[in-house]
Nucleic acid binder design. Structure first.
Lengths: 222, 222
DNA sequence: CCAAAAGTGTTCGTACTACACCCATGC
DNA sequence: GCATGGGTGTAGTACGAACACTTTTGG
């Protein structure tokens, strides 16, 4: 079965930058390519848009297929369309990005991926295609959005401490924050509340656990 | 000559939202469609991406072909890919937006356009495809960007008065501004300077003319 | 009792807001 | 001289930035 057109058509893919904060650093999920081109290179998860699915649906589907993630915050980032960005044929990629909590996320290799692994954005391996550019832009967008929206909460698990949340903010915006100012600010937004529980870890005062009041929402603040 | 692929490929277009402020209102440039589908409807300028040009190049080329505009600020907005958004075939559109000075812009109808006209965004006609959605999103993006970048200067001709600039800001962000505060703010940015000339119009004190110090640049402020 | 992270208030500066009157011109 | 838009300053407020010590726990 083949498909014929009067004019040349590009192929269209979605690629997804999946961020998490783990071991105190911002990480992205990469898969080791199992097929040509760039066999064995690290690349972003993603794949071709089916003829009857929307771009958002494609990104969601690829995300689920290649990593098992679903029901996450997903946002379109930018479209990349340099003519030679894929050696096979003209491929235009609509990039998305998403955030996920760091805790024990199960990584599974899908059909196109031989391996999936978290990589700190500070030391990425050589990447296939223009995926370095995509990650760089995603990181900028993330940093900007952390400053004026509640997107940062998407990184958090059900219950978390303010210190953990602060680390997430610091990693995502790439700058240290004052503890007292951060706590005053985040609490003044009325987006999180105490669970009443405490979290003990190590030889020091246990931390209060918080939860997100309206999970799944990303609001513009400021 | 035909082009055959193993899997179905979507067509890819760019569509361009061209903003200006004229007669004290934010306008977009629309063309009357000369071909199927939606013959006779108003639509955004744009067209198919050639197989060997980048998305940016395509947007620039279509802009020049259909309106004669070149050397303008042009920024990618979003990609629209609902499967049924074009009745002909699956078409994914990468939308761009741009700003142009209001003054006596020559409008020319190109190959695909029978007519090109400015329309106030406050009363748009029914539009082809999902172009209303595209304009709505562009307007939101523009308003947001006016607040934290110098994009607004892209609307201005070589020389302009502060009152004209204020009207542009008010129209683009959709809200009235205090004259004294606006002038203090815009002058504190050191982006514009007096030309020394004055502009007389009507029975009142003539206004000082200003020019942009570094034309063509869009900076992040705040 | 020591080490380690949790938790907590105040001061200062800056940047935005609100607001009303005189100026220069054409007719 | 009057109508019209151009041009100017000050006071109050709110928000972000800087900054150090006490508390609670485990070992």
């Amino acid at each position: 079965m083949t498909y014929t057109y009067k004019y040349p058509h590009p192929a269209v893919t979605t690629d997804i930058v999946i961020f998490t904060v783990r071991e105190g650093a911002l990480n992205v999920l990469l898969i080791k390519r199992g097929g040509d081109p760039y066999v064995g290179s690290w690349a972003l998860p993603g794949g071709f848009v089916r003829i009857d699915e929307s771009l958002d649906e494609c990104a969601k589907r690829e995300l689920a297929e290649e990593t098992g993630l679903s029901d996450v915050y997903l946002e379109q980032l930018y479209s990349f369309g340099e003519p030679q960005r894929d050696p096979r044929e003209r491929v235009i990629s609509v990039a998305y990005y998403t955030l996920t909590p760091s805790e024990n996320r199960e990584l599974k290799a899908g059909t196109d991926a031989t391996e999936a692994e978290w990589h700190p954005v500070s030391k990425l391996p050589a990447l296939a295609f223009d995926h370095s550019d995509i990650i760089e832009l995603a990181q900028k967008r993330l940093a900007a959005k952390m400053e004026y929206s509640t997107i940062g909460l998407q990184f958090m698990p059900e219950e978390f401490t303010l210190s953990q949340l602060q680390v997430v903010y610091e990693q995502a915006i790439g700058r240290e924050l004052d503890k007292r100012n951060f706590r005053k600010w985040i609490l003044s937004l009325d987006l999180i509340e105490e669970t009443g529980k405490k979290f003990s870890k190590g030889a020091h005062r246990p931390a209060m656990l918080y939860r997100i009041i309206k999970p799944g929402q990303v609001e513009i603040i400021r």
